[in-house]
Amino acid sequence: MAAPLLQVSGLRKSFGSQEVLSGINLEVQRGQVFTILGPSGAGKSVFLKCLGGVIAQDAGEVHFDGRLLSASNPASVADFRHRCSFLFQSNALFDSLTALENVALPLEQTTDLSSREIREQAMEALRQLEIDTFASRSPSQMSGGMQKRLALARAIVTKPELVFFDEPTAGLDPLRRNAVFAMIARYQRQLAFTALVVTHDVPEALVTSDRVALLEGGQLRFNGTPAEFSASTLPVVTGFRDSVEALGNTLAALQTPEK
């Protein structure tokens, strides 16, 4: 097997006495859509932020394309930042810029493209996400779903090799949720990026991912293909599957009128 694009070993992170991540090992192959499932509060966002270097891990190593990412090696970190992008759970849009300026900013600040090329590429990204008619709006004047798509546009506009998605579907309606997963899958093939997705949308994740892992109790309890996940009889996996299913049933029960 080829060398993994992203390799994580022994990653640990605590906040005070609360250990959120207690030794995570993970390999993401180039071109994969890798999805991490896990209940809310499991530390999925913290994990992504450690990978992105947003918060410093207590222990463990992250290798990107064979190179160790560490503060003592700023060149490797700069290279990593250049080739990756991040979709934040909170979107983290620049609220004093327009939608177009938001998408243009990473191009403006990290490439030598001309203003016209930047504008064209930014508009193209907006068009791909069907929000080009809102180009001159401020993010605060957009709905939650549109903001999410704007954040997605900003994440893919630099043509990254690896994209981290933190709950890309949070706050979206079911239709858009499907659309986002479809989009990730489509662009993933079209632009050939590698995706590391964090979500709790199990059914969608199982359809679009090449690999899924389950984060619970600070560790990856399962790591395999979607088919293996569906077929797994591991208690943690069945427990998680059941809880998601139970929630679905509860909701369904709420919707069916009582006899």
């Binding site: 992105g52 947003v54 700069a78 930042r81 934040f88 600040q109 990290t110």
Partner: peptide
Amino acid sequence: IQRNSEQIVALETMGI
């Protein structure tokens, strides 16, 4: 406010 809404972090992850 930019710090609070993770805009500063977002800049850093973009390599800015």
